[in-house]
Design a protein around this nucleic acid. Structure first.
Lengths: 218, 218, 218, 218
DNA sequence: AATGAATGAGCTTTCATTCAT
DNA sequence: TATGAATGAAAGCTCATTCAT
């Protein structure tokens, strides 16, 4: 799918990129605070450091700002994950490492993640599919990582099991940001990573057994 | 926490309840379609079957409608789960049953669930804590169910493990609704329940092993 | 052609009519002064005696105001002419009387006529045909009056000649308003009527001859 | 009256003229299509083939463009008429020839004529008198032509009759362009010229009589 | 208790004009 | 002389809320 283009009146591509970066930065912090609908275009312009007229030299509608914001966040997350997934080895260890890394990215960008998930539905019918595709791409990364383990004989999973697993990992990452009001009071990030990994690999039964045997201690 | 009261000018409590039910019913279907911000109070009044003036006899601000809607959805979900959790037995079987039942509730109310999670952040500072509390209550239900199993000796889990587990179950339920564009294309609800339960209890390792041994077949 | 309807949010038809009358009155005087484009909706509302919000309870777009104004002016002119043309007799005398009457209507409504002709082109593609039709209707009135004379044997004219004549009469009326900066300095209305009628019936040759013979004196 | 000067920052007179010609050409076609108010200065600059910054090196306000356009159109029409009126002879034949020629000019420039008449009122208070003066000049041309006939004894008309006649001729020319939606469907230009001339010289009575006597046939 | 006309603050967007390069 | 990015006043329009009936 081609990247949905946001039209700008200004020709200089470098300038467009610079101004849009300012804009996105300002918008994210406003969206975090009050959401997309309660944020005005004037506020976005001001936060970006230029006038309302200038804002509209770089976008065509307010929704374009939201699209640019979402797009930029996805790009950042994907990039961070991509780096990590490059030296794919197909070992359980590397899968665990990938998961932990993803959880840490989520932690770093949690505010942006929240913005993205809560405002995405305000995108119009044109932009939405593009954003959904990004979500699928992210699940795909884990799918590949797991598939590698299966091909390597480290795991034995059906395709469907791989699919559901990759989405579960994604969602458990988001959970750290969505339910931060509880989880982040109870656990540090590293604790959370460890415990979730434990559950992911061994399940309730495994965890329960390990505790019983004293392998894990309270 | 006391239920946040929404002020009404009308005195007759029965009438207030009836009118609000109409209002919530209309509002939910509008919010589903276009979200809270894009829905006007006029539309809500019309969908509820009365005039804009009448609407304002039963609420004070537009946000009240959102609050009433969220509150009502939570109540429905809780109620459905409560029924189920009443004959608590502390067996793994009953825990699995509870999880399955929760997933089915989510499936039935998925549109409402979506509305609630996407619009909740639009609630003002007063209403938000009340709604968060509802979320915690729901996690608490599973916490109790799991704790019962632990007390019964069926499971061996620390308090923290129980906490994280109950939230994970909640989130895996929501996942069925949030990621429906993928999951519901790949799986039936019952398949999803079965596979997620398998993962929850046995983890990746367990599932992988079972498949290898032919206990589960492709 | 069905009258193009302008949508109103307000239900009470009587009130709609009253408010629109206020609106038209205010708008005409503003359009006279500064034209359609230089007049703001706020000014229209103020001139009509209500708020901008109220204005938009009775129209949907600014253009609706222009349409209502044009429509109302046409209706007034047509009505005035219709009255006159009712006792149609098919005599030259009655034709002359009709022309004189039309010229007098133009004189009375000249500002409105100006507004209509200068702003009409700002109407959108939907409203324009309706307004053009009104123009044709007005030419048709004279066509009928002339045709009656022909049928009565008072005149001998082909259909095409009748057509061109009726338009000429219409235009010579408008001329009184369009070129008022010259004509109304040189002539009184009655002089203008007399001289134009003279030309219309006798032409340059006839007028010239009459003057020569002393039938008309300087 | 001195020609109203439009200030330019650029000194080179030749360049100013060339740029303005480009500007007028572009503007006329835009004004034809969408009118003065709906045309933006950016569009004018683009149509003229240079940047918005350059546009403002040759004018001071958007209205200057309209003034230049109107002025240019008048000049063209006047010029065309002037050529013709140069070999003035004071015969009825030459008057008829002048009228026919004027009608043909109108036909050729009808779109420009429309632009001029519909947008003229948008000119500010300074420019308007200058443009009105151009209108009077055009009527004056016919006034002179007719006066010549009177002086020659070919016609017998009072000054007032000459005045009204010259305006009538002007207006009947414009009528061909203003009411083109009807007239140009019914008549060819030459037919229109012939019929209007017939009416102008002989009037309704003359035309009617001629038809009766079979001098003109259907 | 119910109605719906009235209100006006506030929103997004446009565009004539300027000015540093 | 030419450019086009920047500006911000001002426009059209919406909609939550009120209040007389």
């Amino acid at each position: 799918m081609k990247k949905r283009e946001v039209q700008a009146s200004v020709k200089d591509e470098r300038l467009v990129q610079r101004r849009r970066d300012q804009m996105i930065k300002g918008a994210v912090s406003l969206f975090k605070e009050k959401g997309f609908h309660r944020t005005t275009t004037r506020e976005i312009a001001k936060a970006a450091g230029f006038s309302i007229g200038t804002l509209y030299e770089y976008i065509r509608t307010k929704e374009d700002v939201l699209y640019l914001v979402c797009d930029s966040i996805y790009d950042h997350v994907s990039e961070r994950l991509q780096e990590d997934l490059e030296h794919k080895q197909g070992t359980l260890e590397s899968l665990k490492h990938g998961i932990a890394n993803y959880f840490r990215v989520i932690d770093e960008m949690q505010e942006e993640i929240l913005v993205m998930y809560q405002e995405t539905k305000s995108l119009n019918k044109e932009a939405l599919p593009y954003v959904l595709k990004k979500e699928i791409e992210m699940a795909d990364m884990f799918e590949k990582l797991i598939t590698l383990c299966v091909e390597n004989g480290e795991l034995n999973l059906t395709e469907k099991q791989i699919k559901i697993l990759s989405h579960t990992i994604i969602v458990e990452g988001q959970m750290w940001s969505f339910r931060r009001w509880t989880l982040q009071k109870l656990f540090t990030l590293e604790e959370y990573i460890e415990m979730q990994t434990e559950y992911l690999f061994s399940g309730i039964n495994g965890v329960s057994l390990a505790l019983q045997k004293g392998i894990i201690t309270k």
